[in-house]
């Protein structure tokens, strides 16, 4: 009994740390939705492309890890711009599902391009935190998971300051509230769209770098995996709500780790999807979202 309890706590710790990653992906989606009122299903591939680009300086010039990190972020931003250009800028108005389709197209396009370029071989990603777990009382804490949690907190604080304290953040909130009025008041919506793309892509690149390290090896499949996790998080958390995305990400992390430990790997994803389904049916507005209109 006591051991089961310890297991539950251990897995909750792991889940919370890992859930910080889900929360960050969800925040990317949610910021995006807040400004554009659209889903960007190509967000996962954008991140994936960024961290693959980060491999180039690493493998070609044995560059130090901070260069890799910067390349990841810059690469994700560049790919983000391509996504914006191809999937959003030239769409005609009045076709609600068109951006959903273009970003699905982009998801497949980017993922398959990486498959072809890398021959789908996994690439090793060096873990700068080593694999010695820290012992805290009876619990083990993986240093790379801890790094995700800590950087997640840092990112959230930075984002909070950006959204609440700067002119950019004010413009962003204005558009989220009412795009037409924001435009009347002199906010350039198209410029804000591009800046939002840059911001979410950079956040994604930084998050992706950490995730690639905890994985140890990089495979193109993580693109759709990240998109799916991001969607699950924003549906559970509520569209457009940053606190919702954080709670939902942590919740998803904990649920997945408990399922992994007690039911086995085959049931982890099923449980995540059932959670998604339950929220869609019973509470479509999510934990903290406004009621869907």
């Amino acid at each position: 009994m006591a051991e089961t309890l310890l297991d539950i706590i251990q897995q909750s710790i792991n889940g919370l740390m890992y859930g910080a990653f889900y929360a960050l992906i969800g925040i990317g989606f949610t910021l995006f939705f807040g400004v554009m009122k659209k889903f960007n299903l190509a967000y996962g591939p954008t991140i994936m492309a960024g961290i693959y680009l980060g491999l180039i300086p690493l493998y070609r010039w044995k560059a130090p890890m901070w260069v890799v990190f910067v390349t990841c972020v810059a690469g994700a931003v560049v790919v983000g711009f391509i996504v914006e250009l191809a999937c959003f800028r030239y769409l005609r108005k009045g076709h609600e599902l068109a951006p959903l389709m273009t970003t699905v197209g982009m998801l497949i396009l980017i993922q398959e391009t990486v498959v072809i370029v890398t021959h789908a071989a996994p690439y090793e990603y060096p873990n700068i935190f080593g694999d010695e777990s820290l012992e805290v009382g009876p619990f083990l804490i993986r240093p790379d998971y801890l790094a995700i949690l800590i950087s997640g907190l840092v990112f959230v604080v930075l984002l909070y300051l950006l959204v609440q304290r700067t002119a950019f953040g004010r413009a962003m909130r204005a558009i989220a509230e009412n795009p037409a009025v924001a435009q009347l008041l002199g906010v350039s919506v198209s410029r804000m769209n591009r800046l939002t793309f840059a911001l979410t892509s950079a956040l994604g690149g930084a998050t992706g770098y950490l995730v690639a390290m905890t994985f140890g090896a990089l495979q193109p499949g993580i693109a759709s995996w990240m998109t799916i996790k991001g969607l699950v998080v924003i549906v559970i958390g509520g569209l457009g709500s940053i606190p919702g995305a954080i709670c939902a990400g942590l919740l998803l992390g904990v649920v997945e780790f408990q399922a992994l430990w007690f039911l086995g790997v085959g049931y982890r994803d099923i449980l995540a999807y059932l959670l998604l389904f339950a929220f869609l049916v019973l509470r479509p507005s999510g934990l903290m979202g406004r009621p869907a209109t």
């Binding site: 959903l100 549906v235 059932l274 998604l276 389904f277 869609l280 479509p284």
Partner: peptide, 24 residues
């Protein structure tokens, strides 16, 4: 249950259904 949601949500819900079947 699925058709209580529409548009973008329906896309996600149906994909979730497809994945549940696949994982089953």
């Amino acid at each position: 249950p699925t058709l209580r949601v529409k548009g973008l949500y329906l896309g996600i819900a149906t994909f979730g259904f497809g994945e549940i079947v696949r994982l089953a």
